[in-house]
Amino acid sequence: MLEDRLLVVWKFKRGSKDAFCRIYEKYRDDLLTLAKGLLGEQVEAEDVVHDVFVSFARLAGQFRLTGSLRGYLATCVSNRARDKIRARTRQAEAQSPKIPSVSDSDNPAARAIEAEELARLRHALGQIPFEQREAILLHLRGGLKFREIAKRQGVSIGTLHGRYRYGLNKLRSLLNSEVKE
């Protein structure tokens, strides 16, 4: 896999700016999306991604990768996002200073509808419990398998499946209720 080769280059030529840049360019948007999905806040999400990459640069030569690099970085983002949420004294509102990218559809009306749906989805994500949000985003956006997420959450695979399913149902319910309103 390309990501494995990138990591090898990075680990064995530690200090290679080119190798790091390729890794950063490959994963930065995915990780920012994940962080923002978990935190619902742009500045905090950027800070988390920044910190993950700086820590990765510092520790890259020391850790032993047992899964995919993408999964490892996604897990790091999730850990730091969890810390941020714990540190919050109040729930941050899920606001995005940037307009999210939408599909490649040429139909302006369809793009507008989708942009609106994505905005509602972001808001809804902020309303479900962190563990459910984490399960959904790590699986669908981080590429982690259910058993990997279950392990990091310290729960059984059955519990994790439940969190994932309940989370999706809750999102569905939230989005539908907004439509009805």
């Binding site: 948007d29 920012l32 999400a45 950027e46 999210p100 989708e114 994505l118 972001r122 959904i136």
Partner: peptide
């Protein structure tokens, strides 16, 4: 649920 999954996958933020 499949629609929700597709929406989640379409979330896309880009770094500045």
């Amino acid at each position: 649920a499949e629609h929700i999954k597709r929406l989640v996958k379409k979330l896309n933020d880009t770094t500045s």
